[in-house]
Design a protein around this nucleic acid. Structure first.
Length: 596
RNA sequence: GCGCCGGUAGCUCAGCCGGAUAGAGCACCGGAUUUCUAAUCCGGCGGUCGCUGGUUCGAGUCCAGCCCGGCGCGCCA
């Protein structure tokens, strides 16, 4: 399904040229969806700006373009309105033809709803999730994980080759005490590292820390473990590896539950590359010594005293820090993975770090002009109180517990409905559990992704689990209902003949049909701007359009519509709506349900 | 002190390189139900878009200053 706006933009560009020749070169037609249906479906806003450079009246410019504009096959007669807007209204027949041309879903694999992949695929590396293996994943990792996966899905859908890189923290001094603690609590760890199981990493960390602070002998041993680890002592490495693998198992329980796949690549992977990073930067004079540390000074970065702010790539004690590791990782992604688009889905507080990282990589020549470096920053998830998300005791909230609660709350809603004779579905307990998982986890994801990335948001259970409004339950219900309608109508949507004409006559049909046609633009925009909430907004609009179409007062009959051609046309609209919802939810990382 | 992000309806949030009368959900009030899954739909109420000035045909959106909140700013990541 090709974008209608792109088509109309091309026609406008042709008309602009015909009217003004070279003066119209490079002029953006500024085609936008209208906000008010009384202005049609799309409006072109170029005339006011162009009139200025042409020294003509805006309305005259608009009239002239309309005169030469050839859109009769798609739109009704273009209208010039207000100061010089050109309003375009899609013809229902043209909309119907376009919908009809959408090919059926592939038998296997993802249903692309007729949208072609890009002819120019790129290799993309997305830095996402990236918890510290020393501790359990907590709510602070949620946004990066969910948003990163969503962006990965959008780019994969476009046809790019995407690496979801889980840049886990598996190195650093804290691992000394963990190794030492592990040795003492699990003396057999080296005999059978595969079967190491630590029930709760959080309390394991706390125990190790307490012992480190209280027991001098232990602390000494822990420090020695750090040295051994860094010098590559095999026995120490083996314990460290066993710990990291166990910690990763904990992470992957969460990822599985979230239906997210990542490529684990710990910071330690880059250890061998770090000396060369410093050497290479020193050789070209980018890294210089300052207070005993090797630093890169970049234009425009100042500390609180107003002096140049360094990026420290080797500490005065000879150790490296995350600036060095991130530089090495960046280089690796470009040189070894062949990535030309490097995305970092990391919280906004780290913006300055990435500004410096990117500046350094550009200056060093490691990232050329063709390489995109983007920090996709996001705001904080706050408790409903508006404060930082904490347990009652002030600790961090484990991600596992958050998801458990989401599913439990979803299940409570389902069970309450089963008590209500009006809403009872007669679901078996196992079915209910599956539905609760999808609804609960989906609600958390959807709620997160439905907010603008940059702003903080308040985590509110009642809002995200509500059946009303822009939520996962509403969207999942809309999908399940459409599927149910197909079953009730005795129709296998997938078996509807692809050449069944789609005829848009009733106002609610026209509205729904036009909404369906916006899909390519929505996906394109969401992917280009890295904005998941463009998709959620659209899905909500689409659901509302569908509910209007299906509404018993304002909508049309579907299942028992006559004649048969109308019934089939409407069933195809149902199918296309379901397929669009499914694709949209898929891009958000949310599965659908046939029944709920 | 410098920098970044935010301030939009009672609450939670949208608002697409500046576009027509600033939107949605919740809450509140009212209406629709012989159910195609009403877990829905329709209507009403509700705003000095933090403040002031500027740019221009046009500013929630861009610029400057100020107020409020959050975060960052040399060897943690």
């Amino acid at each position: 399904m090709q974008s209608i706006t792109r088509e109309l933009e091309q026609r406008l560009t042709v008309a602009l040229r015909a009217c003004f020749g070279d003066a119209a070169e490079g002029v953006d037609p500024m085609l936008r969806p209208t906000q008010d249906p009384s202005f049609g479906d799309y409006q072109a806003n170029f005339a006011m700006a162009l009139a200025r450079t042409l020294k003509q009246k805006p309305r005259d410019v608009a009239e002239a373009v309309v005169e030469r504009l050839d859109v009769a096959d798609l739109c009704g007669p273009p209208q010039v309105a207000g100061p010089g807007f050109i309003n375009l209204t899609l013809l229902p027949a043209a909309a119907g033809r376009r919908l009809q041309a959408i090919p059926p879903a592939a038998r296997d694999g993802l249903d692309r709803v007729g949208i072609d992949p890009t002819p120019a695929p790129a290799v993309v590396a997305i830095d996402m999730s990236s918890p510290n293996l020393a501790k359990e994943m907590h709510v602070g990792h949620l946004r990066s994980t969910i948003i990163g996966d969503c962006i990965a899905r959008m780019l994969e859908f476009e046809g790019h080759h995407v690496h979801r890189i889980n840049h886990v923290g598996d190195w650093g001094t804290q691992f000394g005490m963990l190794i030492e603690h592990l040795r003492r609590t699990h003396p057999d760890v080296l005999n059978d590292p595969e079967h190491l199981r630590l029930g709760d990493l959080e309390s394991f960390y706390v125990q190790a820390k307490q012992r480190f602070d209280a027991d001098e002998e232990f602390a000494t041993a822990a420090r020695r473990a750090v040295v051994d680890l860094q010098s590559g002592d095999p026995a120490t490495l083996a314990v460290w590896r066993a710990f990291c693998e166990e910690s990763l198992r904990h992470c992957h329980e969460i990822y599985e539950r979230l239906d997210i796949r990542v490529e684990d690549r710990g910071e330690s992977f880059y250890n061998d590359l770090l000396p060369r990073i410093v050497d290479d930067l020193a050789r070209v004079g980018l890294a210089v010594e300052s207070d005993g540390a090797m630093c890169v000074f970049l234009d425009g970065f100042r500390n609180r005293e107003g002096e140049p702010l360094p990026m420290i790539i080797r500490k005065s004690d000879g150790g490296y820090n995350y600036d060095t590791t991130d530089l090495a990782a960046l280089r690796h992604r470009i040189e070894a993975l062949g990535a030309t688009r490097l995305l970092y889905v990391v919280g906004l507080p780290q913006k300055q770090h990435f500004d410096m990282l990117f500046a350094a990589a550009r200056k060093a020549g490691w990232a050329g002009d063709k390489v995109e470096l983007t920090h996709i920053g996001f705001g904080s998830m706050l408790a409903a109180s508006g404060k930082m998300f904490k347990t009652r005791e002030g600790g961090t909230v484990k991600l596992k517990h958050l998801l458990d609660e989401a599913v439990e709350r979803a299940r409570n809603v389902l069970e309450a409905n089963e008590q209500d004779p009006e809403k009872k579905r007669g679901l078996a307990p196992e079915q209910m559990q599956v539905i609760a998982e999808t609804v609960g986890v989906g609600a958390v994801k959807y709620f997160d992704l439905s907010h603008a990335l940059g702003s903080d948001y308040k985590f509110e259970w009642d809002t995200m689990l509500s059946m009303d409004g822009n939520t996962a339950p509403y969207m999942l219900y809309a999908y399940a209902r459409i599927r149910s309608i197909g079953r009730e109508a005795g129709v296998d949507y997938a078996a509807l003949p692809p050449d069944t004409p789609i005829v848009l006559e009733h106002e609610s049909e026209i509205r729904l049909g036009k909404m369906l046609l916006r899909l390519p633009d929505v996906i394109e925009q969401a992917g280009r701007e890295y904005r998941p909430n463009v998709i959620t907004e659209y899905l909500f609009e689409l659901s509302k359009a569908y509910n209007g179409f299906y509404d018993r007062k304002r909508g049309v009959r579907v299942k028992d519509a006559t004649p048969e051609s109308v019934r089939l046309s409407r069933l195809r609209l149902c199918d296309l709506t379901a397929r669009t919802l499914k694709l949209g939810l898929h891009l958000l990382g949310i599965g659908t349900l046939e029944q709920m």
